[in-house]
Design a binder for these strands. Sequence first.
RNA 1: GGGCCCGUAGCUCAAUCGGAUAGAGCAUCAGCCUUCUAAGCUGAGGGUUAGUGGUUCGAGUCCACUCGGGCUCACCA
Length: 542
Amino acid sequence: MKQYLLSLFTDIQDKFEYLDVNEVSFDIPKIETHGDYSTNIAMLIGRKTKKNPRETAQEIIYALRYDPTIISKIEVAGPGFINFFFSTDYVCKSISKILDGGTSFGRSDVNKGKRANVEFVSANPTGPLTVGHGRNAVSGDTMANLLEATGYEVDREYYFNNAGRQMRVLGNSVRLRYLELLGETTEFPEDHYQGEYIADIAKSLFEKHGNALVNEDPEGLFKAEAEMVIFNDISNTLGKIGIKHKVFFNENSLYDDGKISGLLDEFKNRGLSYEKDGAVWLKLSELGNEKDKVIVKNTGEPTYRLPDIAYHATKFDRGYDFIVDLFGSDHTATYPDVMAALDELGYDTTKMKVMIHQFVTIIKDGKAVKMSTRKANYITLDELIDWVGADVVRYFFNMRAISTHLNFDLNLAVKHSDENPVFYLQYAHARICSILRVTDQEGLKSDATKLTLLITDEEQKLIKKLLRFPDVVESAATVLDAVILCAYLEELAGTFHRFYTVCRIIGSEKELAEGRIALIHAVKLVISNGLGILGVTSPQKM
RNA sequence: GGGCCCGUAGCUCAAUCGGAUAGAGCAUCAGCCUUCUAAGCUGAGGGUUAGUGGUUCGAGUCCACUCGGGCUCACCA
């Protein structure tokens, strides 16, 4: 529909000095009487020509040569809007486009042939995934789905570090719990990992090796076992909500293949780094950032910054057209350093988009649950999934804009009731499936040639809503946020439920019934395509 | 103190590039099942969009300041 309107304006572009097709946009008015689509172009032109926008709008309408079987009315309204009304016949017939599109309706190929990399989760293997990681995991996977829906070939990537201080502490935490099992009294430092999972790992080591590990290095088997168990746990949890990364990128590999030392040399040769107090500093203040930062500590160990830069350089070197990083707001301060360095190294950072999601607050019994990874008083993502189910987890994390704080109300999520929006959508789908089972028994078929009979208000609204789906997917993919899609699907479900209460299928005249069956097939398709992008299932029955 | 994010109905949140009368859900109240799934539908009440000023044909949206909340400012990641 939008494309058709745009083509009309392209045809008349030459007739108006200030008319630029690139400036013409079409909105869907909030109020029905303002038409199916509306444009403010006459007001934009009016600003330049100082002419009354309403007059300009009228001149444009006279010039437009449109097919009256498609558009039933064009009018000037308000301060100079041009409103377009599509004919009911055209709206009805558009349903076949949806049915023909099938599972690919809503998808586009605007980015066909391009490759994208989405990095998300990227938690180091020091403990189970928390609810906060859950938001990252779900948002990242959904972003990847959205990009795929616009034609990208997407690699989902997980970056991790199994070296460094945190992992040493992890190994030692396991070692101390192990020694406790042997009856030794040990001091368990407060900065060590307090979680029960540490004791579990120690216990399994004790069962396998008895007391043979008394003198084992904390960085030896203790660390290795912990890493393996925890990683296994992480990927199991991700698997439960349908997430599978294609690439697990280990920070260590950057050392092994010389990327780190090469980068260090390059910084030095280009005069971008210097030594001070036994450490190596990067001249970020000269690259437009606030202050210089250490890239190699006086212990000789790099800070996270150096491998981070090297890592992102590999993403560019691997030839991606679009690179997405997703992390929580606690990392806000870190990425400008990486970006500045990459810029200086000559990488085109406009190809890269850093997405930051705000924190998740778990609300239980009306109160916020305080969480700390080290102290282990947190709710794990795994527990959450077991508790409320994968669909609810995925939907709850998708239904809020990632830039806003998310309150995850456990008491609400756990309710399998009408307070829970995900069921509202799934119910619409299940309801359609149920109708189709019954109509099938009655021998009624879907008949797209009867679509022009769908002229009631409820039917027309429903069809127009369905036709918006590709635009919604495209917008959601552009901003990399599924919240638009969730809002759309909830509207669509509502529009369907209203149709359902007013427009009966069984009991209607056969031709009308068969046209309506074609319509609900289209609704079913759009709901399940939409839920599919969100990673939520579309149940046949509820 | 500096940077980033946020503040919209009692609660949780929408609002397309700055568009026309700020919308949903929940909660509250009043209705609707002998008929395709009532996990549904209809109706009612509920707002100085935190505040003040500015930009313009038009501001929840952009700018400045103020207030309130979160995150962050490491030789941790």
